[in-house]
Design a protein around this nucleic acid. Structure first.
Lengths: 200, 200
DNA sequence: GTCTATAATACGATAGAC
DNA sequence: GTCTATCGTATTATAGAC
């Protein structure tokens, strides 16, 4: 039982959770190399050495963030598949549910962005290997568990990559003063505006 | 007239060109932050300080690479549009020509990858702004010059993002020993295998 | 036009106290 | 469980010679 008198003291498990949340944000925005362990530490409200202490290294922390994000995405898809099956939805219904879940994840952009930041690190021996393995897990989920045919799964994934890249380049930031940006964003994810407004 | 006796001495313009080629490769693989000016210098066969000297800073070099890549992409699209118009192709024909040009650019992966690495740098004040502006230029080209309707342009761009991410994560590297990777890559860009084999 | 030497800084990681 | 102090290194950029 932790000291209830000292609110700044948490269990290691709790601390790891808040670091992972902070790290997903920072890595998602700055990238694996661009993000510093000190930025993660400040975002989590602790000291830089303690971040390294709890995860061993920056690389290990990033791998944990990647694993977390992948699981969040797979969970979202699993819940969509379950709902589609329960409601007896057809292929189009399944696709809509999957898409809705994917877009909803953007409320906490850490998931989308840290995944993408892992993908663009493909030439790193360790992170690249983990990123490829994760990507293939997602593909398998769409093909085998969601039961999408090759072309449908590919198109779905393509739309997902477009949305992720638009979030990464921060296109929503200039939506107000550029008509083309608004047109593009609205085409890529009609409901994104509302989602972003209602969160963060 | 440069000294013809000294093959290691080039004009500044020639040197800038070879640095830009090398930089597109290195930035494309390692990312803006992860790539070092020394890696670029070695790839170009010169010293690190000279790279900085010729471009002023790493950031200026990256912006030049981004500009170069964007122009290469727009040029490819312009030539597709011209060919489509000349042959009186319909909307489907235009789309196929654009797609072919896009995939062919993967022969020199520097273009696709350095563009994507710029996109994921969206939170950088300078690079992010340039990346957004470039992205919108590409969108405008598809909408206005190629004449694609919103949905068609969005779908085309989405497939492009998928291909770019697959190249970035280096999915071709594991195509041989993983059936899912091969299935995904073949769905995303059927002709990519041949292209990569016939080059680099 | 290009190099060597080096300054200045930023960052990940370790040591050790509390 | 968490911090402060600090080491070692990698990296951008500058100075100045050739």
């Amino acid at each position: 039982m932790p000291d209830p008198e000292d609110s700044t003291r948490k269990t290691a498990a709790e601390r790891r959770e808040s670091i992972l949340r902070a790290a997903a944000h920072v890595f998602g925005r700055r990238g694996y190399v661009g993000a510093t362990t000190d930025q993660v530490a400040r975002a989590a409200g602790i000291s830089q050495p303690y971040v390294v202490r709890l995860f061993g290294s920056k690389e290990a922390l990033f791998l944990a963030v990647l694993e977390n994000a992948k699981e969040a995405l797979l969970d979202a898809f699993r819940s969509a598949v379950a709902e589609a099956r329960a409601s007896g939805a057809d292929s189009a219904g399944m696709l809509k549910l999957l898409g809705d879940r994917y877009v909803e994840l953007a409320r906490d952009s850490g998931v989308h962005l840290s995944l993408l930041q892992a993908f663009v690190q493909g030439s790193d021996p360790v992170i690249g290997a983990a990123a490829r393995a994760g990507y293939i897990e997602i593909w398998r989920m769409l093909r085998e568990e969601a039961g999408l045919d090759v072309t449908t799964a590919k198109d779905f994934l393509a739309e997902g990559m477009l949305l992720s890249v638009l979030l990464a380049v921060d296109m929503p930031a200039i939506m107000d003063d550029d008509g083309s940006a608004a047109e593009l964003l609205d085409a890529a994810a009609p409901r994104l505006q509302d989602l972003l407004r209602s969160s963060s």
